[in-house]
């Protein structure tokens, strides 16, 4: 059995509003808000990195979980915006967490999947916690350095922000029991959303929407059907925060009101793999760290990779 034990997040302090982005890329701020639902995003400072953001989110999660870092047996880190080809940020984050009690030598694995990375991490953690007991899943991104903040990068620069989220998946206890998860990949559209070694981020928005709009609800229905559950029984859906239009379309496909979808994309933009865990952490805190109905987490991103996870309230 696997449980979601605690969530945490970290957002850089610098708030970048639409007026600032619009002036850099040459668009109307009002159009930007209307088209994306994004009002502001956070940008990391020059001193911050995917590793420092990830470590702060992990620390927040561990503090909330009120367990010693020594109980963490494995760390999984998703990032698509890592500063170098290798090593990824996982080992740096593990080292930064030693003062928080993480044992030196704790295995730390990178999942360079971008937007669906945290969902994949949670799904893997739900299986791996049988061997590692407590698995710390982190999504951390500095997307502001992956886009061109000038008119040539207009289509992507308006969407993305920086941040990190974390979730402790435990074999022992938690606020939610992981009922099931589904993950899928399709390399047929790998070039449609990519960050090449020499960058910047390339996104064929039309192709991505055409693929995401049917695949996300299909994955959600797959995990629900497999467990004889209905979309109407889900208390809250927490999805990768790509943009409000996509979230609304997924809600429409499932036949549930969009108000059931927790959204914070208007404040943080699309933080790629971090977005799912940041949103989940904020939802959990706003809910008083309690759950009264099942939740579904879902994500879609480069690869293509996508999936959904069903969790039910657990009170021990």
């Amino acid at each position: 059995m696997a449980y979601l034990r605690a969530l945490g997040c970290y957002l850089p302090s610098r708030v970048v509003d639409n007026a600032e982005i619009a002036s850099l890329v040459g668009v109307d701020p009002a159009w930007l808000l209307r088209a994306t639902g994004i009002a502001q995003r956070r940008f990391a400072s020059p001193e911050e990195s995917v590793a420092t953001l990830g470590a702060l989110a992990a620390k927040d999660c561990l503090d909330t979980a009120a367990i010693s870092g020594a109980e963490v047996g494995l760390i999984l880190v998703s990032s698509g915006s890592s500063e170098r080809r290798f090593p990824g940020p996982a080992t740096e984050i593990a080292a930064a967490l030693v003062p928080a009690g993480i044992a030196a030598g704790t295995p730390a694995i990178d999942l360079p999947l971008a937007s669906a990375g945290s969902l994949f991490g949670l799904s893997l953690a739900a299986s791996l916690c049988r061997d590692y007991r407590n698995v710390l899943v982190i999504g951390t991104e500095v997307m502001s350095r992956a886009v061109r903040l000038d008119p040539t990068g207009r289509d992507t620069a308006i969407l993305f922000g920086d941040g990190a989220g974390a979730c402790l998946v435990s074999a022992e206890t938690g606020f939610a029991r992981v009922v099931d998860s589904v993950i899928h990949s399709d390399g047929e559209f790998a070039s449609a959303l990519r960050l090449d070694l020499d960058g910047p981020l390339h996104m064929d928005g039309r192709t991505i929407i055409l693929q995401a709009a049917p695949k996300i609800p299909r994955a959600i229905l797959e995990v629900l059907d497999r467990n004889s559950a209905k979309a109407g029984e889900i208390g809250t859906f927490v999805m990768h925060q790509a943009n409000l239009n996509l979230i609304a379309r997924v809600a429409q496909s499932l036949g549930v009101p969009v108000s059931r979808f927790f959204c914070n994309v208007e404040r943080y933009g699309n933080t790629s793999s971090a977005s799912l865990l940041i949103a989940a952490a904020e939802w959990w805190r706003e809910s008083g760290q309690r759950m009264e109905a099942p939740i579904v987490l879902a994500a879609f991103g480069a690869g293509l990779n996508w999936g959904a996870l069903l969790a039910a309230p657990y009170t021990g």
């Binding site: 928005g205 039309r206 991505i208 929407i209 055409l210 709009a213 996509l246 379309r249």
Partner: peptide
Amino acid sequence: DSFSIQDLM
């Protein structure tokens, strides 16, 4: 636009 193409489908 990017979203109306899904409506077209």
